[in-house]
Design a protein around this nucleic acid. Structure first.
Lengths: 240, 240
DNA sequence: CGCGGAGTTGACCTAAATCAACCACGGTGG
DNA sequence: CCACCGTGGTTGATTTAGGTCAACTCCGCG
């Protein structure tokens, strides 16, 4: 299937750690694949809204290409970005009733659209599918906990280092043969700031600091990790 | 069953919003109840460890009485509290492999202990059970998102107000007939601080501020919400 | 060539952390 | 029965990380 070309072959698409991957032989390629065929493919331009906070939750999506952000707003305009989604990631399938946050395309994006009701209906009769869904949510929960200690207890510098490490592991280098330590950030500094609970300026200063210390090279969107160990240390991301 | 006496009758124990509760008739009382009988009941003293961060994840728990906190530590001692658990809440059942955080008793606590493997095994053959588990994780994910905007974008005063609102809704007044706006906080100011990403002192000052404005009355553990609307406003917890 | 928006850098300010008393109880033991 | 701690809570003074405001740079584009 051509879709797999969009994903890094060695990484598991729905982020299930190796320990949980004692999966049965015929695991589908992506979480929602079993719901095809008859799936709609939809495209969104940069900054276009995929769905909005408070809207009736009817569809969920799988990213085929591009990058999507989820956003929550406080009424005075403060914005928080819940996560960035890359090819293979799934969006909105734990929503019930209303979307609790909005979703917008960071770059021109291709998504596959599924009905949440179809997901629910399938889960109600297919145990394997239900199990994979459950594991997906469990992963989301564990990831969320990681984000909380980042937001609650880490300094600006640590958050930025952690962010770079996360992106290094999640962004597939666009250039064929480009090595893993070099990648293009699809999102703006403002997006990064709203993801990390900081401001644009603080993100810039943090990146500048890391550059001056020779840990990374940055030029606009292009980032190269020069000293991975140094970056891991700067992020306090010990694998306890 | 006697356990229900420990829970507020009008609130759904595993926090599934009404919209999702289109449940089949015979819904069990608590999430893990179907796994009984033969469940062990275990007790923990104040500050005793239920399980520790990094340990092999084999058991999960349901709170019968008392209050439990989940803790994550950075190696330099910074602490973050993921959540407080009250009677009816369930703990650790989305763990795979290792516990990603520790759990400690905030007060003397009674828990029912289940094997994670038993939960998995039951989920693998009981669709209804799997569905409830899945909804439980989905709720956890949605709650986590709420916590993230709190940590990433709210001021100290707003966090404290939000916290009080959460506790008002989750803590069952101990005194029979005590009205809902008065409750006892089982956790210390330090615990609250680590839950909100603040310090003890800032929590104290925030509470003092709300007291001076006549929004609440506080005396040590005892809190009374005098002006619920004012508190909601102070917390920026609009129901969008 | 001039415009406009993202990114960067600098100067300054403020919310919350840190550091330091101090208070208010709830035991404990004389 | 009451003095004595000790622990958690509160309040005040000071410091600081990061936010705010403002200038300026660097492209990309018509």
């Amino acid at each position: 299937m051509m879709l797999t070309a969009h994903r890094a072959p060695d990484r598991n698409a729905y982020r299930i750690p190796a320990a949980v991957l004692a999966a049965p032989a015929a695991t589908p390629d992506t979480l929602l694949e079993p719901l095809g065929p008859g799936v709609q493919t939809v495209r969104f331009d940069r900054d276009e809204e995929v769905f909005f906070q408070g809207g009736q939750a009817v569809d969920c999506f799988e990213v085929v290409a591009g990058c999507v952000r989820t956003v929550r707003l406080l009424e005075d305009g403060r914005r928080y970005i819940g996560e960035f989604l890359f090819p293979g990631d799934v969006l909105g399938c734990e929503m019930a009733g209303q979307y609790e946050f909005g979703a917008e395309a960071v770059t021109p994006t291709t998504l596959r659209r599924y009905r949440i009701s179809a997901v629910e209906e399938r889960a109600a009769r297919d145990l394997g599918f239900a199990q994979r869904l459950r594991r997906h949510s469990a992963c989301q929960v564990r990831q969320a906990w990681g984000r909380m200690i980042l937001l609650g207890r880490k300094t600006a510098a640590e958050r930025i280092a952690s962010f770079l490490l996360e992106m290094r592991d999640r962004i597939v280098p666009s250039a064929r043969g480009a090595f893993r330590e070099a990648f293009e950030l699809p999102m703006s500094r403002g997006d990064i700031a709203d993801y990390l609970g900081l401001t644009t300026e603080t993100v810039c200063r943090g990146l500048a600091e890391l550059r001056q210390r020779g840990v990374i090279a940055v030029n606009r969107a292009h980032v190269t990790v020069l000293d991975a160990a140094g970056l891991t240390h700067a992020g306090s991301d010990q694998v306890h």
